[in-house]
Simulated assay, not measured.
Amino acid sequence: MLGGAGSGAPLYRFLNKCGFSIMTGVLHENDIDYHVGKALGARVIGEKAFEEISDQSFNKAVLLSQQVPYIVESGYPVG
């Protein structure tokens, strides 16, 4: 699930209620989606607040994305 800036939280909740396991893309630790994902038991790839996404986090997200049947993009803002 690709989210950020709160765009993923409603989808995380919905998918969780439907019984789906959730794995996020890279989320900064000050993002509400990070905290909602953690609270729901999602597999969250975290990055320090206000830092660029590290190669390590990016590579982890790419590797894990190859192990899931679906990727949902929540319309998160980029920039």
Results as ranks from 00 to 15, higher is better:
residue 7 S to K: 14
residue 9 A to W: 00
residue 31 D to A: 03
residue 47 E to D: 08
residue 30 N to R: 14
residue 75 G to P: 10
residue 71 I to M: 04
residue 77 P to Y: 06
residue 75 G to E: 07
residue 42 A to Q: 02
residue 62 V to G: 09
residue 20 F to T: 03
residue 53 I to C: 05
residue 63 L to S: 15
residue 76 Y to V: 14
residue 20 F to W: 15
residue 26 V to L: 03
residue 46 G to E: 01
residue 74 S to I: 01
residue 17 K to D: 08
residue 56 Q to L: 13
residue 14 F to H: 09
residue 69 P to D: 11
residue 53 I to G: 01
residue 35 H to C: 02
residue 43 R to N: 14
residue 1 M to K: 06
residue 73 E to D: 02
residue 58 F to H: 12
residue 26 V to P: 03
residue 56 Q to R: 07
residue 26 V to Y: 05
residue 72 V to A: 12
residue 53 I to Q: 10
residue 11 L to H: 08
residue 37 G to W: 07
residue 59 N to R: 07
residue 39 A to V: 05
residue 76 Y to M: 10
residue 28 H to Q: 06
residue 47 E to K: 04
residue 22 I to L: 10
residue 37 G to R: 10
residue 74 S to K: 03
residue 37 G to F: 04
residue 27 L to Y: 03
residue 55 D to R: 15
residue 31 D to G: 04
residue 10 P to N: 13
residue 33 D to L: 04
residue 17 K to A: 14
residue 22 I to F: 11
residue 68 V to R: 12
residue 27 L to N: 08
residue 46 G to K: 10
residue 18 C to L: 15
residue 66 Q to R: 15
residue 73 E to G: 10
residue 59 N to D: 08
residue 44 V to P: 02
residue 34 Y to A: 04
residue 40 L to T: 11
residue 69 P to H: 08
residue 53 I to F: 07
residue 63 L to V: 10
residue 74 S to M: 06
residue 20 F to M: 13
residue 51 E to H: 14
residue 43 R to Y: 08
residue 60 K to S: 05
residue 31 D to W: 02
residue 79 G to C: 14
residue 31 D to M: 11
residue 65 S to I: 03
residue 72 V to I: 15
residue 72 V to D: 01
residue 53 I to R: 02
residue 45 I to S: 12
residue 59 N to C: 05
residue 67 Q to F: 00
residue 50 F to Y: 05
residue 22 I to H: 05
residue 65 S to L: 11
residue 62 V to S: 12
residue 74 S to C: 14
residue 36 V to Q: 00
residue 53 I to L: 00
residue 12 Y to E: 14
residue 59 N to W: 03
residue 35 H to V: 01
residue 42 A to H: 06
residue 5 A to D: 01
residue 68 V to Y: 09
residue 70 Y to W: 13
residue 65 S to A: 13
residue 44 V to T: 14
residue 3 G to P: 02
residue 11 L to N: 00
residue 48 K to N: 10
residue 69 P to C: 01
residue 36 V to A: 10
residue 19 G to M: 02
residue 5 A to Y: 08
residue 34 Y to I: 02
residue 70 Y to F: 14
residue 60 K to N: 12
residue 8 G to H: 02
residue 8 G to M: 13
residue 15 L to E: 04
residue 18 C to S: 10
residue 40 L to N: 06
residue 51 E to P: 00
residue 39 A to N: 06
residue 70 Y to C: 09
residue 3 G to M: 04
residue 47 E to T: 07
residue 22 I to G: 04
residue 6 G to N: 03
residue 69 P to R: 11
residue 60 K to I: 08
residue 34 Y to W: 08
residue 1 M to I: 15
residue 46 G to W: 04
residue 49 A to P: 03
residue 76 Y to G: 05
residue 46 G to Q: 03
residue 6 G to A: 09
residue 56 Q to I: 11
residue 8 G to W: 01
residue 78 V to C: 05
residue 59 N to G: 01
residue 35 H to G: 01
residue 67 Q to I: 07
residue 44 V to S: 09
residue 36 V to W: 03
residue 38 K to I: 11
residue 28 H to Y: 06
residue 24 T to P: 06
residue 3 G to Y: 05
residue 33 D to K: 11
residue 31 D to Y: 03
residue 25 G to L: 06
residue 56 Q to Y: 07
residue 73 E to L: 08
residue 33 D to N: 05
residue 65 S to D: 07
residue 78 V to D: 00
residue 62 V to M: 15
residue 65 S to M: 14
residue 78 V to F: 09
residue 75 G to D: 09
residue 5 A to R: 02
residue 40 L to Y: 11
residue 9 A to Q: 02
residue 48 K to S: 09
residue 36 V to T: 08
residue 58 F to P: 00
residue 31 D to K: 01
residue 64 L to P: 06
residue 9 A to T: 12
